[in-house]
Nucleic acid binder design. Structure first.
Lengths: 213, 213
DNA sequence: CCCGTTTGTAGGAAATTCCTACACGATCAG
DNA sequence: CTGATCGTGTAGGAATTTCCTACAAACGGG
């Protein structure tokens, strides 16, 4: 796969600053993303397309001035190579999905999906492939079951980390070296697909693990 | 100030998963926040209040089932010590603000404000104080002017870091040691109030600095 | 001209990330 | 049955980052 090796040139069009900021903060943690521009409105987006030359456009469906789909279609006319990821306010039916794909949009995520889904989709799309998510069936397919995949020691560490026990203390409580604790941490993160501590914390808190004891 | 020294016990009520997740990811980066619960709806929030015992409730104004204000009022009846931070969809007029304060809400941020504003407010409120933000006048009062406060060297480093130049390379280009570059980074972060690289990147990108050259 | 602040420079300690290593028991295929 | 592979518990090293401290030269007032 040679497609999409360059840094992902991203343009983001989201009306509300709060969502735009917090999404961007997450996305920009990945060092192969380059933010080339952002807008609150559709027309502004179209105006700045040719100067910013994004490879991926992340755009809300409902904008103040226009329909995200309409804007996306215009954008695709200007640059057919653009990968568009649409953020919809509601879950998307397969029927609507078909319309979107027809229009040349590469993927759609809804605001009711977890953020990891959006990030994953973003990177998937970047090479130009279409991403038809699995979000219609079992919503937590991945993570929910993944906890079961952790080994005993890993679970202990995960719980302690989730409540922010310092690595040194964890090592002490388990009677192993700090290095070992780090190894567990690494494995947990790999297995669960986490990238930062908050993901672990949130996951544990959502599954009552870490609450009990 | 002895108030609010314990970890901030936070409850979050936000309907859309995407916003909830991304906000939580940011908030949980602060190690003195303990997430005690989250809900999508108002009634669920009220139900879980007495078992979770939050110190701060972060709640959306417009929930699927109820008005956030109404829920907040109920919550305050159950626990008058609770600090409520309301997230409104629209900018809030002083008139509405008065109503909120009357109801015992400690602060309001709108979805059109930057995320740092929300985080700041969250921590401000936690001791029980009321926070009447400065978001009505000059929106970017802090950060915008802050760049001017950076010294020459600091600006150079800020620009290079914003485009993700590795520290070693920056050191090379400027002809100083890595340690020095780190010092600049620290100072930049302190001066600007940043906590992570994405904040810097976003800030620079928003002010064309780093684009030019 | 003296003093406090800013700026350019850098070092140290501790923590974190990323990778590699390795022994042991279990599982699996031939 | 037996060697190959896998998952698990354990740990070390290198490079990087974070957090703090230091300090001299320059600057800006009073």
């Amino acid at each position: 796969m040679l497609a999409g090796q360059r840094r992902l040139r991203l343009y983001v069009t989201i009306g509300q600053r709060l969502l735009r900021d917090s999404l961007l903060f997450q996305i920009l943690l990945h060092d192969d993303v380059e933010l080339v521009g952002e807008s609150e409105t559709g027309v502004d987006t179209l105006n700045r397309l040719h100067t910013t030359r994004p490879g991926v456009l992340l755009i809300e469906e409902n904008l103040q001035d226009n329909d995200g789909l309409t804007i996306a279609e215009h954008a695709l006319t200007l640059n057919p190579a653009l990968s568009v990821l649409l953020i919809s306010d509601t879950p998307v039916s397969t029927g609507r999905m078909a319309i979107y794909l027809e229009a040349g949009i590469k993927a759609v995520v809804s605001k009711h999906q977890p953020i990891q889904e959006l990030i994953k989709t973003l990177f998937y799309i970047r090479g130009g492939q279409v991403y038809v998510g699995n979000w219609q069936h079992k919503p937590a397919a991945g993570a929910l079951g993944a906890f079961e995949a952790l080994s005993g020691r890993e679970r202990e560490v995960a719980q302690l980390m989730a409540r922010r026990t310092p690595v040194r203390d964890i090592a002490g409580q388990l009677g192993v070296s700090c290095k070992t604790v780090h190894s567990y941490k690494d494995r947990i993160f790999v297995k669960m697909g986490f990238e930062r501590l908050p993901e672990l914390i949130l996951f544990m808190q959502r599954h009552q693990h870490g609450a009990a004891e």
